[in-house]
């Protein structure tokens, strides 16, 4: 009962925050809503993670995977867009489940932006990389079994990532969904979308097997 009350209260507060923001920032209300939603959508995942009694080894492994994806993003700085981050997030999810996937994705975004610069894009990167990890965990079985599915998942994540960022920037700049600006942005960033998709596929196919082998080895050697 108490739990339900608390839950209701939290929902109420969230709604109040969003609506008062909408009233305040009339002509930027869509930007406001989208950024609030991005932040708030991460919250339940984080709280769930906090509540659960995780194995220490799993905690450390998430930290390792986050560090690896941040390092990979730093190493590949000279090639814009061509990054193994998504691949590492999906691989973590495939072997350790949705929750680990979400955490790895979301935390990689926050931490790597300590090196690349935070901005209004941080919450979106967190949510999207997190969700890519989450669904990677949901479809883990299929992704592990079929190379084709894995590649398709890579392409899809590239497209989703790129278009979500475009949508946000249009909403923010125009205060509404300006179709012509959206199309231009999509065209302008289409080469990035392609690079994202291609790099995801390449890195997923290249890494999933060897890293999977390492992870399996760790799992048996240290009894995870």
């Amino acid at each position: 009962m108490k739990k339900r009350l608390l839950f209701g209260l939290v929902i109420l507060i969230i709604l109040v925050v969003i609506f008062s923001g909408m009233m305040l920032f009339k002509d930027k209300q869509y930007a406001w809503i989208s950024i609030s939603v991005a932040v708030l959508a991460c919250v339940p995942f984080f709280l769930q993670f906090e509540k659960r009694n995780n194995d220490i080894k799993k905690l450390v492994l998430i930290a390792v995977m986050v560090s690896l994806s941040v390092i990979s993003r730093i190493i590949f700085t000279p090639l814009p867009g061509f990054k193994p981050v998504t691949a590492l997030v999906v691989i973590t999810a495939m072997y350790f489940g949705s929750e680990a996937g979400f955490m790895t994705g979301a935390l990689s975004a926050v931490i790597s932006n300590f090196y690349f610069g935070q901005g209004p894009w941080t919450p979106f990167q967190m949510l999207i990389w997190g969700l890519i990890g989450f669904f990677g965990g949901v479809f883990a079985k299929r992704l592990l079994e079929s190379k084709f599915d894995l590649a398709m998942y890579g392409v899809l994540s590239g497209i989703v990532f790129s278009s979500a960022m475009d949508t946000w920037s249009v909403l923010w700049v125009d205060g509404s969904f300006n179709v012509s600006r959206f199309l231009t942005t999509v065209i302008a960033s289409s080469q990035f979308m392609i690079i994202y998709a291609v790099s995801n596929v390449i890195f997923l196919l290249l890494f999933s097997k060897p890293i999977g082998k390492f992870l399996d080895r760790i799992k048996t050697k240290f009894q995870l």
């Binding site: 709280l47 905690l59 560090s67 926050v110």
Partner: peptide, 18 residues
């Protein structure tokens, strides 16, 4: 979020180490 912030702290430790 104590657990997550520990994970973050570990990551900040691991990145230079790796």
């Amino acid at each position: 979020i104590p657990k997550l912030s520990l994970v973050l702290s570990m990551a900040f430790r691991f990145i230079p180490l790796f």
